[in-house]
Amino acid sequence: MDPADFYTGIVAELYGPLKSVTQDPEPYAAFVEQAGTPALELGCGDGEPLLELRRRGMDVDGVDSSADMLDRLRRRAAAESLPVTLFHQRMEALDVPRRYAAVYLAGPTFNLLPDDATALSALRAIRAHLAFGGTVLIPLHLPAPTAEKDVGRARTATAPDGAELRVSVVAEDRDEHTRTQTTLLRYERYHPSGSSVTERPWVLHWYTRDGFRTLAAVAGLDIAEVTGPDGRPAAADADHLHVRLRPAD
Rank of each mutant, 00 (worst) to 15 (best):
E33P: 01
A101F: 01
S168Y: 02
G16Q: 00
E225G: 01
V60G: 09
A93V: 01
L215A: 12
Y7N: 09
E52A: 12
L14N: 11
V60K: 09
L165T: 01
H240I: 01
M91F: 12
I10M: 09
D5Y: 07
A77R: 03
L94W: 06
S168E: 13
G16T: 04
R209P: 06
P229G: 12
F87P: 02
L14K: 13
H141D: 08
T198F: 08
H240V: 02
L245N: 02
Y187L: 15
M69Q: 13
P83K: 05
L40S: 14
G162L: 11
L123H: 07
L94G: 12
A35N: 07
E199W: 04
R209I: 10
D71W: 03
F132C: 06
A235T: 10
S20W: 00
Y7T: 00
E52M: 04
R186E: 15
L204V: 08
L204C: 06
D5G: 08
A102S: 15
L137P: 03
T37M: 11
V32L: 08
V203R: 11
H177G: 09
E199Y: 01
G16K: 05
S65R: 13
L245Y: 04
E48W: 00
G107M: 02
R186P: 06
H205R: 10
E148H: 14
E52L: 04
S193P: 02
P201R: 14
A101S: 15
D150K: 14
A30P: 01
V103D: 06
T146K: 08
A79L: 11
D59S: 11
G9N: 07
V218W: 01
P229F: 02
G134H: 10
R90I: 02
L221P: 04
T109S: 15
I223N: 04
L73I: 08
T22R: 13
T156C: 10
V84C: 14
G162K: 02
R189Q: 09
